[in-house]
Computed example of a mutant assay.
Amino acid sequence: MIVVSGVGIAAAMLGLPADPAHAQVRGTDGLAASAQASGDGVRVTGADPVDMNSTQAMNGTIVVQTVEMGNRWSHVQNTDEIHVSAEFTTGDASYAVRIDKPMPRHPLGRYTTWSGAVYEHEMHGDTGIGTAKLPKMRPKIALWGWAEVRRNGEVIARAAPAHVMVVTDGPIPGVMLEIDTEDKGLAAEPDGYINVMWHKVEALQMPEGPERTSQIIGWIGIIAFVALFGGLAAFARVERPKP
Rank of each mutant, 00 (worst) to 15 (best):
V155S: 05
Q36H: 14
A142R: 07
V118P: 01
R105P: 01
K200H: 05
H106R: 12
D48L: 10
K140L: 00
Q65T: 05
T213R: 15
E148A: 11
G60P: 01
G70I: 01
T112P: 00
M69S: 01
E178S: 08
A47K: 14
M1L: 12
A33T: 02
E154V: 12
F88H: 02
A236P: 03
P104I: 13
G192P: 03
L16Q: 04
A160V: 03
A96R: 11
G39K: 14
T28G: 07
A233N: 07
A203Q: 15
T66R: 01
D183Q: 13
G6L: 10
P17N: 05
S85P: 01
V42G: 01
G6E: 13
R26I: 05
D80P: 02
W146D: 02
V166L: 09
G91C: 13
G221L: 15
V76S: 03
A21N: 12
H22T: 08
V84G: 01
L232N: 03
Q24H: 15
L16V: 00
G125W: 05
N195Y: 08
E120K: 14
A203F: 07
V226K: 08
R110C: 00
G41L: 06
W146T: 03
L108W: 06
G221D: 13
A147G: 01
T55Y: 10
G125F: 05
E87D: 08
R105G: 09
